[in-house]
Computed example of a mutant assay.
Amino acid sequence: MPRYEDLAVGEQLPSQTFPVCRGDLIHYAGASGDFNEIHWNERIAVQVGLPNVIAHGMFTMAQAIRIVTDWVGDPAAVVEYGVRFTKPVVVPDDGVGASVEYSGKVGALLGDNKVRVDLTAVSAGRKVLGRAVAVVRVP
């Protein structure tokens, strides 16, 4: 667990890569109640102009905050969190699916033991989240 007085702007969080397959999307749909067909039906996804089935944006957002909660050691330490969705995570039905690489760095020391963490998410060489920022309270 990081300590506020030991942190510096620019410090990197441990990066993580998470796989995404169609089964993950079905499980997420069940948990979230978002059964939009673009997240599981290739024919519909292509029909509406997408290259293939895409991951739920909130699924991608949830994976991104994992690197912060793993780093800080306590999900309740997250004070604020927001992202902009810039590109979809395309999930082909090829037995492999997709992967998303998440990284983060300390963007600012805000005082009162709060740290701004700037996150990056990349899938298939494209940035899929923009302005992904978490504010975390550390000891």
Rank of each mutant, 00 (worst) to 15 (best):
1 M>C: 07
1 M>G: 15
2 P>R: 14
4 Y>I: 09
6 D>Y: 02
6 D>Q: 12
8 A>N: 10
9 V>K: 15
10 G>L: 10
10 G>Y: 03
11 E>S: 13
12 Q>N: 06
14 P>S: 12
15 S>F: 01
17 T>Y: 03
17 T>V: 15
17 T>I: 12
18 F>E: 11
18 F>V: 13
18 F>Q: 10
21 C>A: 07
22 R>L: 15
23 G>M: 12
24 D>C: 11
26 I>V: 15
26 I>C: 03
26 I>W: 06
27 H>W: 06
28 Y>Q: 02
29 A>K: 10
29 A>E: 05
29 A>N: 06
30 G>W: 06
30 G>N: 07
31 A>D: 09
31 A>W: 08
31 A>C: 12
32 S>E: 03
33 G>V: 08
33 G>N: 10
33 G>M: 09
34 D>I: 01
35 F>N: 00
35 F>W: 08
35 F>E: 00
35 F>Y: 06
39 H>A: 00
39 H>W: 00
40 W>S: 07
41 N>P: 09
44 I>Q: 10
46 V>P: 01
47 Q>Y: 00
48 V>A: 02
48 V>W: 01
49 G>V: 03
49 G>F: 05
49 G>K: 06
50 L>W: 05
50 L>K: 04
52 N>L: 01
53 V>E: 01
54 I>Q: 02
54 I>Y: 04
54 I>P: 12
54 I>W: 01
55 A>I: 10
55 A>E: 03
55 A>P: 11
56 H>T: 00
58 M>E: 06
58 M>C: 05
59 F>L: 15
60 T>H: 03
60 T>E: 07
60 T>P: 10
60 T>Q: 07
61 M>V: 05
63 Q>A: 09
63 Q>T: 08
64 A>R: 13
67 I>L: 13
72 V>P: 11
73 G>M: 03
73 G>V: 09
74 D>Q: 10
75 P>S: 00
78 V>L: 10
79 V>R: 15
80 E>T: 04
81 Y>C: 05
83 V>C: 12
85 F>D: 06
88 P>R: 03
89 V>I: 15
90 V>G: 09
90 V>M: 04
91 V>S: 07
92 P>V: 02
93 D>K: 06
94 D>W: 07
95 G>K: 05
95 G>E: 01
96 V>Q: 11
96 V>K: 12
97 G>Y: 12
98 A>T: 05
99 S>I: 04
100 V>C: 12
101 E>V: 12
102 Y>S: 10
102 Y>E: 05
104 G>A: 08
105 K>S: 08
105 K>G: 02
106 V>Y: 04
106 V>C: 04
107 G>I: 02
107 G>W: 03
108 A>I: 00
109 L>Q: 06
109 L>E: 07
109 L>T: 08
110 L>N: 11
110 L>R: 13
111 G>T: 14
111 G>A: 11
112 D>V: 11
112 D>T: 13
112 D>Y: 06
113 N>H: 14
114 K>L: 11
114 K>H: 11
114 K>W: 01
115 V>W: 05
115 V>C: 04
116 R>K: 15
116 R>M: 13
117 V>H: 05
118 D>W: 05
120 T>F: 09
121 A>F: 02
122 V>F: 09
122 V>Y: 07
123 S>K: 13
125 G>T: 04
127 K>C: 13
127 K>S: 15
128 V>H: 12
128 V>R: 13
129 L>S: 02
130 G>L: 11
132 A>N: 01
132 A>P: 00
132 A>Y: 09
134 A>W: 12
137 R>W: 02
138 V>Y: 06
139 P>C: 03
